[in-house]
Design a protein around this nucleic acid. Structure first.
Lengths: 355, 355
DNA sequence: ACCAGAACTTAAAGCGTTTTAAATTGTCCT
DNA sequence: AGGACAATTTAAAACGCTTTAAGTTCTGGT
């Protein structure tokens, strides 16, 4: 062991710092190195570094100092292997989505609070959900938090056999999975309530195409209209989640016999298309017509849009997702759970009294 | 060994699938399990699974089949430890930045082509560069690709001792680091050329505050103006990277004696503020005044803005970053290298002939 | 001095792979 | 049949840590 140490030392000297990075094999200090430095066993050092009770105060201090001097940093791969726990939550995200970005932000803090770390795997044009999830498992993630997955329920169910799956932001038929989401129908309901409260009766909805989310929102619109006795005023225009769709819908309305007094769009992106088309046509918003989006995108907050919209409380969803994971991992919960949060209407500048 | 197998088998049956996830300790099949299944050693299986030459075709097929049957997936932590290589590139990103999202997308494909994987660590309000980088190292990243780091050059230099650092998108004084970036001054120069070509002479620049990037772009503006003999027309308005700053600047211009014929903003965000203020004031763009941004944000592409801007070629930067990493890791390059790419002007709808 | 028990420390056995050197099997000649 | 060599296969030693059971050292009380 002494010999070994000397060898390492010599090698480092010979190395001279020039070939430091060769093959990424820059020697980082190991537990053994700091142990040798203070004349203790690696066991003690490990104990101190993990903050486990046992080692004396004197030992603690010396070890901490030595570790700092050497710039020691634990090797996650080794400790995962040894402890049989990675304490890692795998998160699948669409890196282009601002909403996911927000979720990740809160997932980080929530996970940290319960002693877990996050590993991210992103979807891209050339990287599908399958690949993303495999990466997460290869890192030995203990649970999988999937943000807005599009895989069918049965695929997710199979996945759940390898590690508990928590789906965020999407309703899942009745697979035995944990789901955290907001009530999309209710969110649109709140929008309609708000508009009706402002005296609107001619409220048009621009659809978001197929998909669970679009379905829920559309239903929310219909239900709310009927609730207000406006069942016969229900009017759904085809559309999708793009600005272009919003523009098309708005032009369609402009070409029509009479303009409604309010337009509710599937999401913010789409709403902005609507907004742009109206502005260009000289129709005042919210003077002549009110426009509402959904998602509380960064976009909607821009003062030039200042869009009334619905927020999905990223913070709460993230916390619930982490809690769900921890319950599965550390508290033996086996029953699936669905957490449905109430979205929050954000009234900004694109809604006003009906004319 | 046979006994051991039986034990594992029994345990799985007892488990019955209900307590599967307890402590994240779901037993995944190991190399040994697939070896046992085909009656070979783990060594052979390892060889086959990694595609190393040696095993006979017959063996190969049998192993592959067994692995598939068992749903075997290699455990990265173990193989990293054993092979002393993680083949992992650590990437620090600001998850809220659309530009970083694009870079990550291309980094993924570039890394894959050379047999590396990416591990992402994000900056958030509560997670600074220090923490992000430590996480990357804890995973044993072999190189660090930092997207737009703000840490001072000397901190980055120290970091480079632990693993080769490749900085993307930011100029670094003269640290011995690899840098990949675009020539910001040149980008702004292209904008000015474009405007001058359209007959503009009164071109105002809205500044981006302090910071290396802002400095470069401002310099680019000044240099280009002088180059066109417009040195006496140079006019820089205070600003930063926000929409609000753009609005302020535009209002300032509107209040002034005479409007310039073109405004160049530090970035797209800022340009959109400018745009919004002009539109609201009834000043036609590009009829009366031209506006240009920088970054080619998703924002700028929205048809309602359709902003003329400058693209930073995420794809090229990503490829160069990965190449730089690989050269350091696999080809013993020790000399730092700076790659400066030429940005590309994207002419859209906010620039036109000077009036 | 001696001893029980508390306080602290450590030896050693893994964790699931890779890798090297050695062992085994197979093939083709004489 | 025997031997040389190539083609396969494998035993066993890492990798850097955690963890458990077993020491060892201290206390304070007799």
């Amino acid at each position: 062991m002494l010999l070994k140490e000397i060898c390492r030392g010599e090698a480092q000297v010979d190395d001279g710092g020039t070939a430091r990075h060769r093959n990424g094999a820059h020697k980082r200090p190991r537990l053994e190195d700091v142990a040798a430095r203070v004349g203790l066993s690696t066991a003690s050092v490990s104990l101190v570094l993990r903050g486990v009770a046992g080692p004396s105060e004197r030992t603690r201090q010396r070890v901490l100092k030595a570790a700092a001097d050497l710039g020691y940093q634990v090797d996650r791969t080794a400790s995962t292997l040894a402890s049989r726990r990675s304490r890692l939550l795998g998160v699948m995200v669409d890196i282009h989505s601002p909403f996911h970005a927000e979720l990740v932000e809160h997932l980080h803090t929530a996970a940290e609070e319960v002693g877990y770390d996050l590993v991210l795997s992103t979807l891209t044009r050339t990287r599908d959900e399958q690949t993303a999830v495999e990466t997460l498992l290869a890192f030995r993630s203990e649970a999988l938090i999937l943000l807005g997955p599009t895989s069918p329920a049965d695929v997710l169910a199979v996945l759940d056999n390898k590690a508990p799956v928590i789906t965020v932001g999407r309703r899942i038929a009745d697979a035995a999975l944990d789901v955290v989401r907001t009530a999309d129908d209710e969110g649109v309901g709140q929008i309609v309530d708000h508009l009706v409260g402002l005296g609107h009766r001619e409220i048009v909805y621009v659809d978001g195409g197929k998909g669970v989310i679009a379905t829920d929102r559309r239903r929310g619109y219909r239900t709310a209209m009927r609730r207000h006795g406006l069942g016969d005023r229900i009017r759904v225009l085809a559309g999708d989640n793009t600005e272009a769709a919003g523009e098309r819908a708005a032009r369609h309305l402009l070409d029509g016999p009479e303009l409604p007094t309010a337009v509710v769009a599937f999401n913010d992106q789409c709403a902005i298309g609507v907004l742009a088309a109206f502005t260009r046509a000289g129709v005042s918003v919210p003077g002549r017509i009110s426009v509402v989006g959904y998602d509380d995108d960064t976009l909607s907050r821009l003062s030039c849009f200042n869009l009334t919209t619905v927020s999905q409380s990223a913070r709460e969803q993230a916390r619930h997702a982490v809690t769900a994971a921890v319950e599965r991992l550390d508290q033996d919960r086996t029953e699936p759970r669905e957490v449905v949060l109430t979205p929050r209407l954000i009234v900004r500048g694109t809604t006003g009294q009906a004319v």
